[in-house]
Design a protein around this nucleic acid. Sequence first.
DNA 1: TACATAATTGAAAGCGCTTTGGATGCCATT
DNA 2: AATGGCATCCAAAGCGCTTTCAATTATGTA
Lengths: 340, 340
Amino acid sequence: MNLKQLSELLGLSQTTVSRALNGYPEVNEATRERVLQAVKETGYRPNKAAQRLATGKAGSIGLVMPTAPGHQSDVHFGEFLAGLGEEAVRHDFHFVIMPADPDDEVAALRRLAISGNVDALFVAYMRGHDPRLAMLKSLSMPYVVHGRSFGAEPDYPYLDIDNEGAFYDATRLLLQLGHTRFALMNGPTHLDFAIRRRNGVIAALAERGLTLEEDCVSHALMTDEQGLLAMERFLQLPQRPTAILCSSTVMALGAIRAVNQAGLRLGEDISLIAHDDVLPLLKPESFSVPLTTTRSSLRAAGARIAQRLIGTVKQAGPFPEQELWKTELIVRASTGPAPS
Amino acid sequence: MNLKQLSELLGLSQTTVSRALNGYPEVNEATRERVLQAVKETGYRPNKAAQRLATGKAGSIGLVMPTAPGHQSDVHFGEFLAGLGEEAVRHDFHFVIMPADPDDEVAALRRLAISGNVDALFVAYMRGHDPRLAMLKSLSMPYVVHGRSFGAEPDYPYLDIDNEGAFYDATRLLLQLGHTRFALMNGPTHLDFAIRRRNGVIAALAERGLTLEEDCVSHALMTDEQGLLAMERFLQLPQRPTAILCSSTVMALGAIRAVNQAGLRLGEDISLIAHDDVLPLLKPESFSVPLTTTRSSLRAAGARIAQRLIGTVKQAGPFPEQELWKTELIVRASTGPAPS
DNA sequence: TACATAATTGAAAGCGCTTTGGATGCCATT
DNA sequence: AATGGCATCCAAAGCGCTTTCAATTATGTA
């Protein structure tokens, strides 16, 4: 069933049917009703490819999924996608996902953009001085960046959380509890959020005249394995840190295992604060020692970005170009006063 | 730059340029060279929407992502997607993801199919007597089902793992270790794999004249929370089970917490075997008590399905219609002889 | 009553590609 | 010289939609 057949069936022109379907005001309400009724009965669906060719709009937003054989797939990606989806489903948008080697992200993003398959782009996994920004600006296609790019002029549309503030606050809390020996389990060095979180910690420590020693910082993939390894390393330090900041609840999982294996008690011997993206299968509140976290929902961020992206494509009013979300600092049992 | 402009530039017809680009044999090699050269110089890219409208082929495979506000996003989905992606990236295919309310999956799948945006469908989260099968058959679009539909004639293309066999073998192992009181922590009742796994357990028990008591079975979302709750319930039973089968390592996480909290020792007081989809952030081998599992990589399954789907679209030879993968039973420390 | 105006509808021209159904010219055969 | 086959190429007809421009009818105004 296509437009032509439908219009013949109704004894109307394609023009009128098309208008009725797309909510144009110049069609008689009675006619529109008739058309809508026929659509319901026949199950007619406009062919998207044709629609796209005619309008230039695809009703879809594109994103690059970093993937490669052996490449760790990322829980955060799925969660974020769920957020995007939640919003997209309300506007009959869909996603076009271009899988790409992580080393090939710039090219993949360009391919996606000029493929003509998408109306807007979503960009994540931002790095410091991210090379994709220049490319995006040259593209004349709407986009929103999740995160920011440290070192780049902040003149691009983004939604980010206040990573520096989050870790600054977390560190301050630990300082107030009397801790003086700190360690940071962070994500990969080149990623923007890792840079900012580190800065947050350093800034808070500096106010007390403390510094973050090089051997008290780990940069690694945010897996529980890496968490275990990093924590084991920390615990073997001659001057063992008592306060640990951690970039992910996934990593914290491994870290906690290391603490337990060392026979230490979380919240007493070791205080731990992790950043919580509100992942579905990791509830810090139900850890055996509930985990103090800086919290910000990845999923909510996804939904908001979808909203901005779709709104822009549909020309539905202006959106703020830059948004910086505060995180919540939620104190639970994994933090306590420094052991004397 | 479009085909018309390019062909004018070259002094050729659109026909010839199109053929040169698409590898048709009836164009002079010299001409083809000239065209390819011009493409390189002008950066011409064919408009996908037009291509699609003309050919009906989109170079993409479609899938429905169950999502709704408040709906738990699923780690397995992301991992599976990574597998699909790994293969798709090699063939310049992409995905079109249609987010949909879980209650609306049949309709969503149909929308996706007739949208003209996809060449093939991937279908997951199969249920017993799944209503989507009939719809898919009527569709004349290639598809592959991940899993099967219990109770339906197995005449559709699928890739599944031998869920029944996996849990049968796991149960037998526990029986050999002397266990007699079993419990099963399963996924939602209506899902196909849950049905088959349960059957596997029941079959193995039956051989020894044992039965699976109703209060020793839990059907729930496969989250760590539900795992915790289910295990707590099991442990409070008057005749406490000593052998637990679990449908997911995520769930096992919570279950293990419950065991620890009850002051029991995993692998001694309680033996546990879980099914391992090889999720990136849950390594059963590095649990504090390494976990005995039935293993089958979700990601590998994704890649294989992508291969079949893309191959079918490209008419690249026939693929087996039905595949049933064996799982591996990997024995680690979470299983031990029944306590006396 | 005559005319301007608003409300509705349609014909047809694209959108950028693929593909059918010829053309055209060239060569080897009869 | 007439024939057929082959290698190349092209004009034009779609694919299924949107949108411009125009036509038609109904309504209101002086």
